[in-house]
């Protein structure tokens, strides 16, 4: 069984985000830190767990982007993926989901994967689109926000639990090949092992040139990004920490909420 895990390299959003001069995307500098999209870490871990539970499973990881994304592909190998694929997409700045989906589908369509996994969303644009778009381009069934799955290789089916709102979960059966977008909390992503780090450092990545043949021109334009406006009603407490604590207690007291 062949599994493909689609991973995205994102800017570490815990650090402060600087906008580029035209306000259209994040300013990338030498000190900008990148990492694997957190949702995709869970997708990769799920693939690794499937591999451990079933003999004869191989895992490929793929990422689309400029040369810096090779780092997350290597990270995927160091966690235990068998092969790393880098689809070189040179354009700097923001790359919309439709373009990424076209590149992944273009590659995956030639490889006969049984299962494609990716995170439920990317931490940067938060669109939740690449997974279902890729499935649609490949004409395979897709389940989103998966928190559990069980593979029946004999009948080539996979039973999944998809998270809904307010604690509800839907169970769905898909035929393979299928694409799942994985929700956080499904597992605990592992740290790379020493032996895999050594292997990842020496293993050649499969380099693929982006194909623009089947890509339709993008019809969505990200005009600008900006910091959100503060609530006009908000009262930011001033003073020393002790003074702020006193002010809070007064607010709580006046609302009769304290013991």
């Amino acid at each position: 069984m062949k599994i493909l895990v689609c991973i995205k390299q994102v800017v570490c959003s815990e650090s402060s985000l600087e906008l580029n001069p035209n306000g259209k995307w994040i300013q990338e500098t030498d000190s900008t830190e990148f990492r694997m999209n957190r949702f995709d870490e869970y997708a990769l871990e799920e693939a690794l767990l499937i591999k451990e539970a079933n003999p004869g499973v191989t895992i490929d990881v793929v990422s689309v982007g400029p040369n810096r994304v090779k780092d997350v592909v290597k990270k995927g190998l160091s966690k235990g993926a068998d092969n790393g694929v880098h689809i070189l997409y040179e354009e700097s700045g923001y790359c919309p989901p439709r373009k990424i989906a076209h590149q992944i589908a273009g590659y995956a369509g030639k490889q006969s994967y049984d299962l494609i996994l990716t995170g439920v969303m990317a931490e940067d644009d938060m669109l939740c689109q690449v997974g279902p778009m890729t499935a649609s381009l490949l004409s395979i069934p897709c389940a989103v926000s998966v928190i559990k799955e069980e593979i029946d290789l004999v009948n080539r089916m996979i039973t999944v639990q998809s998270e809904m709102e307010s604690g509800k979960v839907e169970e769905v059966i898909l035929s393979l090949p299928a694409l799942l977008t994985i929700q956080t909390g499904i597992n605990q992503p592992r740290y790379p092992s020493l032996s895999n780090i050594v292997r990842a450092n020496s293993q050649e990545l499969i380099d693929v040139q982006a194909s623009f043949q089947e890509e339709s021109p993008d019809k969505v334009t990200l005009l600008s990004i900006d910091y959100p406006a503060k609530s006009s009603k908000i009262c930011i407490l001033e003073g020393s920490a002790e003074e702020k604590a006193e002010q809070l207690l007064t607010i709580f007291h006046n609302r009769s909420l304290l013991k």
């Binding site: 985000l17 931490e123 334009t221 005009l223 600008s224 990004i225 900006d226 910091y227």
Partner: peptide, 18 residues
């Protein structure tokens, strides 16, 4: 022009379509 959250809400993006 549509406005939506990005980067866990740290930024907002304005998007238009053609």
């Amino acid at each position: 022009v549509f406005t939506r959250m990005m980067f866990n809400g740290k930024l907002i993006g304005k998007t238009a379509c053609k």
